[in-house]
Design a protein around this nucleic acid. Structure first.
Length: 489
RNA sequence: GGGGCAUUCGUCUAGCGGCCUAGGACACCGCCCUCUCAAGGCGGAGAUCGCGGGUUCGAAUCCCGCAUGCCCUACCA
């Protein structure tokens, strides 16, 4: 007797995939996948003014990147289409007609000015601004007069004074007093349906079993519940998620960091990390585990455990998850993903360098916090004209001249060491340091700078092994030239 | 103005009447590891559980007020 679980994500294409919407989509997806239900994508573009078809593709891309695949939608079709509200107006019109016919809705011939005046007066009297049903009270003659004056009526739902309530999986039972819901508009003057009407009709027609969406929709839910009742339909189960907010605890917007999922992608975040981070905004498993893959979340996530309080988006915590997930990837996977970021970051990569790239990346990846930093982290592996700035050395215990003669011996060592690998190089260099009577670190740092051009790098000898004998030799020679200048100065 | 909802370390959270002198994680600080930087390990600081009343032998947990915040209050979604 239990109906199949069907959930939906219903973005309006007024922008790319917003992080808040991404979280909503994630919760819906997890719900559906856990029980083998259907995850439906429906585009809510009834506001032609603000909707833009180009954003649709951005939303798809964002969802796909996150790994949230859908079963029905405008692009893949499905048994209850079309899945774009702009293409469903006939269906809405029919429902509107039904409400008109049963006198649960009426044509409202008031003008915008009249309604504004009413609101203003209510506000002046300190009363809540609520549409009083002005349009219900016109006589037939008044209506005829307004018609001929060119007033185009909107369709309003006839809301009778009675309390409205519904049960919410996250928030519990929610109710509102008898005078709170006024006669709201369900269809514009041009006949097109408004949001509240369209969602109800769509959720019914698409057999949506659970409406999982942001908390900002709770007040709409009262209107929707009324519409279900009027149309003789059973409302779905509702679950309203807490909002993702900024540090000032307001709705998350562009000023608070990247707003669109695509931006996180270009900033080098892993979809795994964003998913993991987002799910913890309002949910926790109840034990102390924190790292979850999408598949694991499908098993663990329960709407019943979702919090009611809004959650602040903390970019530092996202960064942490990103690092964790980068370190979790296996090398081939990471190399695959980092390659294009590296190319975009300006690294001059030839496709035959993939093994070299992977070997270098293996040394760097615990230092890699964001994929888009790949190039800046690894550029010295690929710059064959590297001209190390030896001025970075702190010539405290050993002068530039002494350092130069030590590096001469390192050049010789680089030529002789065989095999040219991490342990052999390390042993040889330590022996050299001992010969010189230098502290090992005092020798390694100038070599590091000579060979990589920087003070912070992966372990030196592993780095040298990857760079190879030739590069190391060339760079050391060049460093020697620079050192000579420093020694002379 | 009205309504709805919320309120545990700076942040994400655990907690569902005694296990809490409130646990974990991020960020922060210190130490260790160490050729640098990371990563990792260990430790520290950080929450009188928004405030005030109750109920109870006992409350972060239940009830009532208040405060604050957020969302909605469109012929937007």
């Amino acid at each position: 007797m239990t109906q199949p679980i069907r959930v939906r994500m219903a973005p309006s294409p007024t922008g790319d995939l917003h992080v808040g919407n991404a979280r909503t989509a994630l919760c819906n997806y997890l719900m559906a996948r856990r029980v083998g239900g259907a995850f439906i994508l429906r585009v809510e573009d009834t506001d032609a003014q603000r909707s833009d078809a180009s954003h649709e593709e951005g939303i798809y891309e964002g969802l796909r990147w996150l790994g949230l695949d859908w079963d029905e939608g405008p692009d893949v079709g499905g048994p209850f289409g079309p899945y774009r509200q702009s293409e469903r107006q006939d269906i809405y019109r029919e429902a509107v007609q039904q409400l008109l016919a049963s006198e649960q809705a009426y044509y409202d011939y008031t003008t915008a000015d009249e309604r504004a005046a009413e609101r203003e007066q209510q506000r002046a009297e300190g009363r809540p601004p609520r549409y009083s049903g002005l349009g219900r009270r016109f006589t037939a003659a008044e209506i005829a007069e307004r018609k001929s004056a060119g007033v185009i009526p909107a369709v309003r739902f006839r809301s009778e004074p009675s309390p409205v309530q519904f049960d919410d999986i996250v928030l519990g039972n929610i109710r509102v007093g008898p005078d709170e819901v006024d006669d709201f508009v369900i269809a514009r003057g041009d006949g097109s349906a408004l949001y509240n009407m369209a969602v109800v009709v769509d959720d019914e027609h698409m057999r949506i079993s659970h409406v999982v969406r942001g908390k900002d929709h709770v007040s709409n839910t009262f209107r929707q519940v009324l519409l279900y009742e009027a149309l003789g339909w059973m409302p779905p189960a509702f679950a309203h998620l807490p909002l993702v907010v900024n540090r000032r605890r307001q709705k998350f917007s562009s000023r608070d960091g990247a707003q669109w999922v695509g931006e996180y992608r270009t900033q080098g975040y892993l979809p795994e990390a964003l998913v993991n981070f987002l799910v913890f905004l309002g949910w926790a498993p109840g034990d102390e585990r924190e790292i979850f893959s999408l598949d694991e979340l499908v098993q663990e996530f329960r709407l019943e455990r979702v919090n009611r309080a809004d959650a602040v988006f903390d970019p530092q915590r996202l960064d942490h998850f990103n690092g964790v997930w980068i370190r979790r990837l296996d090398l081939n996977d990471l190399a695959e993903r980092a390659w294009s970021y590296a190319a975009q970051g300006g690294l001059d990569l030839r496709s035959d360098q993939r093994p070299y790239f992977a070997a270098a990346l293996e040394l760097e990846y615990e230092r890699l916090s964001h994929l888009n930093r790949t190039a800046e982290l690894m550029d010295f592996f690929f710059d064959d004209d590297l001209d190390p700035d030896m001025g970075q050395v702190r010539f405290r215990r050993h002068s530039a001249a002494e350092t130069a003669s030590a590096l001469e011996r390192v050049v010789a060592l680089v030529d002789e060491t065989d095999p040219f690998d991490d342990p052999t190089l390390e042993a040889a260099m330590r022996t050299l340091a001992a010969d010189l009577n230098w502290r090992a670190g005092d020798l390694f740092m100038p070599v590091r700078i000579a060979v990589t051009g920087r003070r912070a790098t992966p372990p030196l000898f592993a780095t040298m092994e990857v760079l190879g004998r030739q590069r190391c030799r060339d760079r050391l020679r060049r460093a020697l030239v620079g050192l000579a200048k420093l020694a002379a100065a």
